[in-house]
Structures are given as C-alpha cells and as structure tokens.
Design a binder for these strands. Structure first.
Length: 424
RNA sequence: GGAGAGAUGGCAGAGUGGUCGAUUGCGGCGGUCUUGAAAACCGUUGACUGUUAAAGGUCCGGGGGUUCGAAUCCCUCUCUCUCCGCCA
C-alpha cells in the first residue's frame, strides 16, 4: 500500500498517477487526507492526556512509598476523571484509524512515469522482440495433440484424480518438466540468486503481505480446516521471508529464486483459450525476486528483464517484450514487462513471464525495511518475475519444434532431458 | 493425539506490581594504547510514531482483562522445546 505521509505531501501528483491506472474514485485521495488530518489531531489530544496519566501514576507510586495515602487517593481521583474523558476519544481514534487503513489498501500502486497510457492489453507497447519465427507445414499440430501423440501428459486421468486443469505428467513429459526446472534454477543461481524451496501453503498474514488478501481471496485455494492458502506463486512465501525485518544496507540487494508448483482457481474461464496447457489450475514455475535500495530498483528491473530475455534466447523461442499500459497493470505494480512467446501451431502469443517493480508498495505492507548509511530506516523496493512459467513454454517448445519423427529440443536442454529429441 | 515447559533488545540471558524500555554478557560502532593488528581499557548501541529540534506516545510472541500503575497478575490465541503415541 501507499504511505499516507506520501499521499499527504503529494496530493495532486497521486491523483494524476492514479488516473493513469484508471482508478475510478479520485475523491478517495481527498477523503484519506481529511481522515488523516483528523486522526493526527485526535492522536495528539489523547497522547497528551495519556502523558498526564502516566505522570500522575508515577507520583502515586512515590506517595504510596512514603505512606502518604490521602494524597495518593486524591491523585487517583484525578486519573479517574482524565480516563473517563479519554474513553470516547480513544474509541473514535481506533475506528477512524481502521477506516483509514481499509480505504488506504484500496489504492493501487502509482505507475512509473514510463508507463504508457491505455485501457487494456491492446494498448500495451511492444518494447523488444527476438528469436526466429518458425515455419511450420500446414498440417502442424497444436500442443495438445502432440502431447497425446507422444504420451507426455494425461489430462483425463488428472481430471479423474483431482479435476480438470490438473495435468498428470508422465514419462518424457514428466522428464521434460524436471529438465526445465533444473535448467532454470541453475541459470538463476549462476546469476547470484539464492535458491529457496518454500512451503506451498501460507497463512493469512503472509497472503495479506503480498496483496492476495483481502481482495483476491477467490483466486486461491483455501484449506479451511487450518486457515491456510495454497500459493498462487512462489512470490508469496518467498517475499514474506523478510516480512517485518530490518536489513542492513550491506545485505542488499537480496536475490532469491524458487521453484514451486502454483495453484490458481481462476474461476470463470472457458473455451479455446483454456485448451491443453494454456490455462491450468496447477502448474510449475520458477520465480526470481529482488529486494533493493530504492535508488537501485529500476536498474535491478532492467537486469531482471535482460536475465529473462537471455533465458528465452537459450530456449530458442520467438518472443516479444511488452511494456504494460496503465490499465493492464496489476494493482501492486509500478512498472511491468510481460514476456510472450509465439506458439506457432496455435498462432498465438502466450504470456510466460511478467517482471515487475513494486517499489515500496509491497514493502510497506510487509514492513520490509533497511537501515541506510546515515542510520535511517526506510522501506526498500521489491521486484519479481517469472523465470519461467512452464506450461506455455512447453506448449511453444512442442509446437514450434515438431518434426515428422520427433520434437527437437534446444541444445541447452539436452543434458537435462538426457536426449536431443523427444521421440515416441 | 496425550503430558509438561517456555516465548524479553542482533544473540545469550536477568527481571514476579511503581524511577524498567528494561541488569549483565557477547556481538556491533567510536575512542585510548600500538608502526599496524590483537588484547586490555573507556564510551556508545532496539523499533515505531512525532517534531525544525525536542517533549510526549506506543512496543517485553498476538489479542483481551484486572489496577492509579503490568515484562511481572488473570483469560485467550499462536508458536517453540521436552517426553509419550502415531508416522514418510
């Protein structure tokens, strides 16, 4: 969430930036500032009263020690009357503070100045591309047919075991998953990211920290008996590693990577877009996360974008990089680059990574701070990105590399997969 | 699942109703000494809020209560450890 002190000091700028994100209630900013004003007044009033009470209590202690009971009694009376005058203000303060916070968390992050204007995905700006577009014969097959032909994934049995959208990988299909995960993790750790293998269920405080709660509750699977949520991405447990921590400047940047399965309910999507691996409830993803000093975060973002781009080049997939417009960005992001690969048989661009700078928006929620050289504690910046989400990578690899007698794999995968080609 | 013990500052560990936001040790930082370092010695060292700066307020796992006053007493939740049971 945004800091109220920042909103107070930059009222018009905040409104202007929120407009880029198509935030619908600009009046909220004024409401917040008004509430904040009132809150701070109430606070200083109650604190002054509390100070008198504290002082009187101390005096009572000393009088009791000297055996001056009557004087002590008189002071007690004084405290009692102060307290009764304070009760109303205290409860008003608590409910006002509550209301302010509830309103404050409804504000999305402010978009970076380089974010293009726009309403929807159609307004995103292509910021780079690479790789060769494959030339496939007319009878090229979509990945779901190739999966059946090479017996890589059994969707029907997955549905029997659990439900639709829970793929059952088998044989070479399972091996390919393992090869990709291993390759991605090796690539990330070589670049200095520390590998984590986190819990796959998180508690409420953790889900709140990264912004899944309170709003996006419906997107997660909920284990009601224990109050846990299945993670929709490794970002959730891994970013929370440093929740409520104050880091030393010398520890920054923090670079973390993690492979996890990801669970998403994604209710309400049907049709051709969800065929095969395009959209599933459980999938594998390798994530990268950085925590940096504020002045370094856009440098880190660039580094992460280059990192993911190189990965796609290794996989020899045609890709493009999109700079998301204000209307298509996530609630928490200040600047996001999406990576899409071209899946040639479907003739579709598929999103395989999303790299974002959240600036201090998440850090403020989670109270992740660092102590700078001057000894001042301040919020740090968090960033994350996928490197990479597997299902659509697999879809593109299969479709783009299909041949008469097998599916050719990019050379980086040969040693991990144990063969250069997927054969029947 | 059963029984018990515990949760205090970066760490260890005192503190059972009042000058306790907290003794002490280690660690960190600064200094003296030294060619330099170590050792020794001296000083300093939690967070949030607030302010030009202060004062003040809040925080001893979380929440609630008793009291003029709570780290200390009561209730409740969470977590950790030990023993037993079960188990990959």
């Amino acid at each position: 969430m945004l800091q109220i002190s920042y909103i107070r000091q930059n009222r018009d700028f905040v409104k202007e930036r929120l407009a880029v994100k198509h935030f619908a209630q600009p009046g909220v900013v004024d409401d917040l500032i008004r509430m904040d004003e009132e809150l701070r007044q109430l606070k200083s009033q109650t604190e002054t009263m509390q100070a008198s009470i504290n002082a009187l209590s101390k005096e009572i202690g000393m009088l009791m020690g000297k055996g001056q009971r009557d004087e002590a009694e008189a002071k007690k009376q004084e405290v009692a009357s102060l307290k009764s005058g304070m009760a109303e203000k205290t409860s008003a303060l608590a409910s006002l503070e509550d209301a302010l916070n509830q309103l404050l968390v409804t504000l999305p992050n402010l978009p970076h100045e380089s974010v293009p204007q726009g309403k929807s995905a159609a307004d995103n700006v292509v910021d780079g591309k690479g790789g060769k577009m494959p030339e496939l014969p007319a009878n090229a097959k979509p990945h779901w047919e190739l999966i059946r032909e090479y017996d890589l994934i059994d969707f029907e049995t997955g549905a029997k075991i659990t439900g639709s959208g829970f793929p059952l990988f088998k044989g070479k299909g399972a091996r390919l998953q393992r090869a990709l995960i291993q390759f991605f993790l090796d690539y990330n750790t070589e670049a200095g990211y520390v590998e984590y293998l986190p819990p796959l269920m998180v508690n409420e405080a953790t889900a709140y920290g990264t912004g899944q709660l309170p709003d996006k509750e419906g997107q997660m699977y909920h284990v009601t008996a224990d109050g846990f949520y299945l993670i929709p991405t490794a970002e959730v447990p891994v970013t929370n590693v440093y929740r409520d921590e104050i880091l030393k400047e010398s520890e920054l940047p923090i670079k973390m990577t993690a492979y996890t399965p990801c669970f998403r309910r994604e209710a309400g999507s049907f049709g051709a877009d969800v065929r095969g691996l395009n959209r599933v409830h459980q999938f594998d993803k390798v994530e990268i996360i950085q925590m940096t000093k504020p002045e370094r975060s856009y440098h880190a973002l660039e580094e992460m974008v280059n990192h993911v781009e190189r990965l796609l080049q290794f996989l020899e997939l045609p890709y493009r990089i999109l700079r998301l417009c204000g209307g298509d960005m996530s609630f928490t992001s200040a600047l996001t680059f999406d990576f899409e690969v071209y899946s040639a048989a479907q003739q579709k661009w598929l999103e395989v990574s999303s790299v974002s700078n959240f600036e201090s928006f998440q850090a403020n929620r989670m109270k992740i701070r660092y102590k700078d050289e001057a000894g001042k504690t301040q919020l740090l910046h968090t960033l994350n990105g996928s490197s990479l989400a597997l299902p659509r990578i697999v879809a593109a690899l299969l479709e783009n590399n299909q041949q008469e007698d097998g599916i050719k794999l990019p050379s980086v995968l040969h040693k991990y997969f144990g063969a250069p080609v997927i054969q029947k």
